[in-house]
Design a protein around this nucleic acid. Structure first.
Lengths: 228, 228
DNA sequence: CCCACGTCAAGAGCAGTGCTCTCTCTTTTG
DNA sequence: CAAAAGAGAGAGCACTGCTCTTGACGTGGG
């Protein structure tokens, strides 16, 4: 392990600076990020950017990865900060943290969960960090099951579906009944829908009390998954 | 009322032809619609398009309007085709119709419910057609309430929210308790989330039986709104 | 009938985009 | 100290939305 050379440190700083400026452009100008505009802000020429990122998509991918991790950190931190015995409190805290992060970083949220850019295919690196929020939610359910505070749902899944979800249970490494995982995914789907509606402006201008509306809606889903 | 002149009829046909080709480009190339490419396909030069649409955004708006109406038609038709006494059947049919339309027209769905285009602001004309699917869902609940087949939820909404939702009830002109409307909106949010995840996300590659998964998820929401 | 008016399409051009290639200068390395 | 590698600048290609001008054509009124 040699000490990084001056050039290497400058390079790392440059990469960070490019990402910072790009993030700023993302927040102000929306999803269509212009490499040339970023370069202009940095006082350099557009072709110089290609020393650091092989293409615009790679820059976007780097931003997406960081955004997934930032969202995952926020959700997991909120869950960890709550009273671990209070399952419903943990669920609500995780959901609120996701919404708060999305409201604070709307353009990055749109990058993660908006319509996919036509030519762009997200690399596999993004799969794991993307699953952190739903995994956190399911983890709360697993904890509840383990501690006996959460009763599994009465129903079971019909067969072709049961196998799929059971496989997903194994993939996530969380020992919960398939029917419960399905309800947990319903909660995650609902959370995503709620945030997207609020952010993309499709939801009602007739609902001024957005915090209360959000809390009520995620409360409904907490009921659905069986949190007391 | 005079008969439209030959020129007017040719013009109307041209507008339709442009929209058709644009829709095709949308489906193949994704959201970034190129005016020049559309013009090329029509054997004309890009500037000629501006005789019919003042800008690219106006062409997009026309497509969005038609898409909203197509989706609304599909959902309402599915609801109307179901046995009107079978409330749960109507709910499921409406949801399935929305999904089917989205899967058949992914790019147009993305245009409607994906991340908003930065510079673009949807005109007010789009508000009414955009509300047709959720209004259809709530209409099912109202019918159930009127016929006594659906019991309103036990709970009531806490105060700041109750007023908001009550106002929304008035706005929609549907006489349902606020708590029930809130649950109906949860169902609509869930439906949007489900379709978006399936279309955009590569959530659940581990779920090959998508139809069954979808049916189960909307079934959960049918339970939540109280449909027997 | 005919001509002026309004519509239409084409072409050039402007400012912007992602990206490539070359050329030069500086830093690191053997 | 010389060779190799890295970094930035600049020109250029193909593309985008959009504007303006120019010339051709169909149509309705005199």
């Amino acid at each position: 392990m040699v000490a990084p050379s001056l050039r290497a440190r400058v390079r790392a700083g440059m990469i960070e600076e490019i990402k910072t400026v790009a993030r700023r452009h993302l927040d102000t100008d929306g999803a269509n990020l212009s490499l040339r505009a970023v370069a202009r802000d940095l006082g350099m020429v557009s072709s110089a950017i290609y020393r650091y990122f092989p293409s615009r998509d790679d820059l976007l991918t780097a931003l997406i990865l960081e955004a997934y991790d930032a969202l995952g950190d926020a959700v997991e931190a909120a869950d960890a900060a709550a009273d671990q015995a209070d399952l419903r409190g943990r669920w609500l805290a995780a959901c609120r943290a996701a919404r708060a992060w999305a409201l604070a970083h709307p353009a990055e949220y749109a990058l993660l969960y908006g319509s996919p850019v036509p030519g762009y295919a997200a690399p596999d690196d993004t799969v794991a960090p993307a699953q952190r929020p739903p995994v956190t939610l399911v983890g709360i359910l697993r904890d509840g099951l383990a501690s006996g505070r959460l009763a599994p749902p009465d129903e079971d899944l019909p067969e072709p579906l049961r196998g799929d979800v059971a496989e997903l249970v194994g993939l996530l490494g969380m020992d919960v009944p398939p029917a419960l995982l399905a309800r947990g995914m319903a909660g995650w789907t609902q959370l995503f829908g709620l945030i997207s509606f609020e952010l993309f402006g499709r939801i009602n201008r007739a609902l001024p009390h957005r915090d209360e509306y959000f809390d009520h809606q995620i409360g409904l889903m907490a009921d659905l998954v069986g949190l007391p």
